[in-house]
Write a protein that binds this DNA or RNA. Structure first.
Lengths: 131, 131
DNA sequence: CGGGATCCGGTCGGATACTG
DNA sequence: CAGTATCCGACCGGATCCCG
């Protein structure tokens, strides 16, 4: 027996007990979106990734890399050089979800002006009530 | 003068100082994905939304609804009945991003089996080393 | 019904120091 | 270079109580 989502067929993220919600939690995350987005442009070494995703700490980078590797979204290849060389690359699965996350990032960039004007109109509301 | 991302053209979420990274942070979020996904199937009242997104607390629901409303992703309509009736509906913008987030949720459900087997293979690794 | 306000534990996540 | 380990503050997010 194990933690299932429901009895019928596939999984349902809208149910609190569904184990696949953890996956959504890992993927629907700012750092994940940026990391997979960077890797979508090709394999990166640790330091390259760190620089590509500006502002991420090495702790978060390592932590997310491990989780993403564990879930099969990327591979970690160590070349026995000195100093060590480690390369991260997307798997097929990683590329699939990466595409969706890249779409999200791209959308955020492209439509930020619309969002900001929506924000201004919202903020300047209750100061000049209805009439 | 204001906080810009860079000088040339549009915004860049990969830069730490880019204000549009906040938008990505709001969107690339488990609750946001599920809420917009539920609203993509039509307008919902507060309680309906609470039940559709199983496990969300009313605090998180309210908080995210306010932010999403402020950024123009959904509208909040109050009908002067007793007891009050409040309806939430996606805007055009909300439907656009919602589509990407629904894709992410759907993908997570559909591919959870692949992820779980990747997870098992990863976990059963260092116990039986190379040779 | 649709919230606001508050308390509070747990985790997120940055900063720093150390290693092969 | 590519991490691991630890400290610690911030805030995420659930539980509870209250209101119009």
């Amino acid at each position: 027996m194990e933690t299932t989502c429901d009895q019928d067929g596939p999984w349902d993220v809208y149910l609190r007990s569904c184990p696949c919600r953890d996956v959504l939690d890992l993927l629907a995350n700012k750092w994940t979106a940026l990391m997979l987005g960077a890797l979508a442009r090709g394999p990166h070494r640790f330091g390259e990734l760190r620089r590509a995703v500006d502002g991420i700490s090495q702790k978060m980078l390592t932590q997310n890399l491990r989780q993403l590797e564990r879930d099969g979204f990327l591979t970690r290849t160590v070349y026995p050089t000195t100093p060590p060389t480690v390369e991260y690359a997307l798997t097929e699965m990683g590329a699939e979800v990466g595409a969706h996350l890249v779409a999200l990032s791209t959308w955020s960039q492209a439509n930020f002006d619309r969002i900001r004007s929506a924000r201004e109109s919202y903020d300047g509301r209750e100061l000049q009530p209805v009439r």
